[in-house]
Simulated assay, not measured.
Amino acid sequence: MDTTSNNGFIHTQISNKIATITFSHPASNSFPSHLLNDLTETLHSISENDEVSVVILKSEGSGAFCAGASFDELLGIDNFEDGKTFFSGFANVINGMRTCKKIIVGRVQGKAVGGGVGLASACDYVFATDVASIKLSELAIGIGPFVIEPVVSRKIGKTATTQLTLAAHDWKTAHWAFEKGLYSEIFASIDDMDLAINVFTTKLASYNPEALQEMKRVFWENTAHWDTLLYDRAAISGQLVLSDFTRMALSEFKK
């Protein structure tokens, strides 16, 4: 299963009941709208695939895991509806991960910013390298991590999310993310991480798929209201991205 374009791609490979979803974009694996839509559709398809028990979510390359939203696309937003639609793309992906019937294992080989932190938080179990620092830079560009806040807070707690959000210019280390519960395991190298992922997912895929599916429901109890909440949050971001402060900040960041 492939969805490709000249501006990034989503690729899916299925083997031994494990689906590996790889996303890629030349700008540090960031997400324009079309890739968010492609990833959401892929998650829905995998959720209904009886040949899959476990999903590995990864990005291409050995650099950044995910730089979050596409700055180019953010700069092009000039009305509220387009803004809300863009940020709803992240809401769709997070809800797609939340409602996916399969256990999702994250592979974070490098830095994660903004929406990338949201993606890692929406995984059920996350492997990372010790260079996989994280940052929520949204306040620095005049918006805020409104859409991803519920999933980040669910994973690391409200206090840690507050620290991460308000220190918008600062990186938190992979060890900090591990201590707070975002990362389940961290490794000194990508090779070591990949070996561990292979062992872990092979074992998971050997378990009763019905039991895994029921545990997935248990893990995500009390989140059904996100079907509304995340889109309400997208509307906040969609409005703020139109502000003069945000337009200037985005332009400076791009420089």
Rank of each mutant, 00 (worst) to 15 (best):
L36K: 13
F86L: 14
A69Y: 06
V126P: 11
L75Y: 01
G142R: 09
T40K: 15
T99V: 10
V54Y: 03
K58G: 01
L43D: 10
N29A: 07
V151G: 05
D50P: 01
G96P: 00
N95F: 04
E149K: 14
T165I: 06
E149T: 12
I46V: 15
S88C: 09
K155H: 06
K158I: 15
N95I: 14
G118Y: 06
V93N: 02
K101V: 02
F90P: 00
T40P: 01
G76F: 00
V93A: 02
K58P: 04
A168V: 02
D72T: 12
V113R: 12
F80Q: 10
K111L: 10
V131W: 01
V93I: 11
A174I: 06
D130I: 07
L36W: 02
V131H: 08
R107G: 01
I134S: 05
W171E: 09
T173G: 12
I143M: 12
A167D: 15
R154V: 00
L164F: 11
T42C: 14
F146A: 12
A112M: 15
K58S: 13
G63P: 02
D78L: 03
M97L: 14
G89I: 08
F90Q: 13
S62I: 06
F86A: 03
A132G: 05
T165P: 01
V54W: 00
P32Y: 02
G83I: 09
G63A: 13
E41H: 12
I134L: 14
G89W: 06
V105Q: 10
W171Q: 03
K172I: 01
K135Y: 00
I46Q: 08
S62A: 11
K101F: 00
A91H: 07
N37C: 03
D170F: 04
G142T: 09
R107D: 13
C100L: 05
G96C: 07
N29E: 06
D50E: 14
S45A: 15
N79H: 14
L136R: 05
I77E: 02
R154M: 09
L139F: 07
D82N: 11
I104F: 11
K172A: 09
T159K: 13
E149H: 06
D72I: 05
I56A: 01
N49I: 10
A174H: 07
T165D: 03
A174T: 05
H169A: 05
T85A: 15
K111Q: 08
I141P: 00
T85V: 06
A167F: 09
I148K: 01
N95C: 10
R107K: 15
A132T: 04
N49K: 10
E48T: 11
G118E: 06
G89H: 10
I94L: 15
G68E: 05
A69Q: 05
L166C: 03
S33H: 12
A132D: 06
L136D: 05
T161N: 13
I134N: 02
G76D: 10
S47Q: 07
K84T: 13
R154T: 02
N49C: 10
F86V: 02
A132E: 04
V105N: 04
D72P: 03
A168L: 00
